[in-house]
Design a protein around this nucleic acid. Structure first.
Length: 269
DNA sequence: TAGAAATGTTTAG
DNA sequence: TAAACCTTTCTAT
């Protein structure tokens, strides 16, 4: 489930469980064998996320992980299960309470030990992350406000802003009543600021809840917890279902190779 | 139960 | 533009 909130949670969890401890690093699948050999037994200092990227600092050597579309981490306490399937990387350590802790990585697009200049290069090409700064609105608008590209495409461009994926794109545009097809330069500075502020709220809620929930019904339920899965979104993957506000059928189309969802009435322009 | 689609990005052509 | 990544979830049968 990798949009920015997922990586933020993973960084926090891995820091809590592993930071300051030597980690036994292996690659049962073999694809990360060289990197695992380099890191094995060393102390991980901290794990941080930026956008959808995850960085684990092993004191000079940095492990860079990008989950891509279906990469996943599985984490547990106690003895790790027998390796199954394409297990790219496994960490095992003595956790903060003295019990064993482990985490398994599968399916990632990127899992590499990278030199610091490459870390800097990755960070340099990322726009502001709503989970790391509340103040990224004006910076991202500098790109958006002069672009002829559709705002639905700009939101997916990690150099404009980092951490938003297909779910947050669809949902924040609906909440702001902006058509995904509107050119960036036709979005006003105040409109964009409101969209940015909404992303900060939504993505922080995503960190808290561990999943993406954007509906007002969800706003009311966030404290009490349970929000039914079918109530979590306004338009994402609701093609053909009635818009929660006006009842018009939610539409779908492809934009930049990804499925886009919107209400043609609420988001007419 | 099987097959398709998917919360993403890079690389090759 | 298409393929690769090779897991998880959703949908159709």
């Amino acid at each position: 489930m990798p949009e920015g909130h997922t990586l933020f949670r993973l960084a926090r969890e891995q820091s809590e469980l592993f930071a300051g401890r030597p980690v036994h690093v292996t690659s049962p699948q073999g694809r990360f064998a060289a990197g695992a050999a380099l890191l094995d037994g060393r102390v991980v200092e901290e794990v941080t996320s930026y956008g959808k990227h995850l960085f684990a600092d092993f004191g000079g050597d940095v492990l860079h992980v990008h989950l891509g579309l279906y990469g996943t981490y599985t984490t547990g306490v106690g003895d790790p299960p027998p390796p199954r399937g394409a297990l790219r990387m496994r960490w095992v350590a003595d956790g903060p309470k003295g019990e064993g802790v482990w985490t398994d990585l599968r399916g990632a697009t990127a899992c590499d030990v990278v030199p610091q200049p490459e870390v800097d290069a990755i960070l340099d090409r990322l726009g502001p992350d709503p989970l790391r700064t509340r103040r990224g609105g004006p910076l991202s608008y500098a790109r958006v406000g002069r672009s002829r590209t559709a705002v639905g495409a700009l939101l997916m461009d990690q150099s404009v802003l980092a951490g938003v994926g297909n779910v947050y794109r669809a949902e924040v545009l609906f909440r702001q009543r902006i058509s995904p097809f509107r050119p960036g330069r036709d979005v006003g500075a105040e409109e964009w600021q409101a969209l940015w502020d909404d992303l900060v709220v939504l993505m922080r809620a995503g960190v808290r809840m561990g999943r993406i929930v954007t509906t007002d019904r969800a706003d009311r339920s966030r404290r009490s917890g349970a929000v039914r899965r079918e109530d979590a979104h306004y338009v994402y993957r609701r093609t053909g279902l009635p818009c929660r506000i006006c009842g018009t059928e939610v539409r779908t189309a492809e934009m930049v190779g990804r499925n886009l969802y919107w209400c043609p009435v609420c988001q007419a322009t």
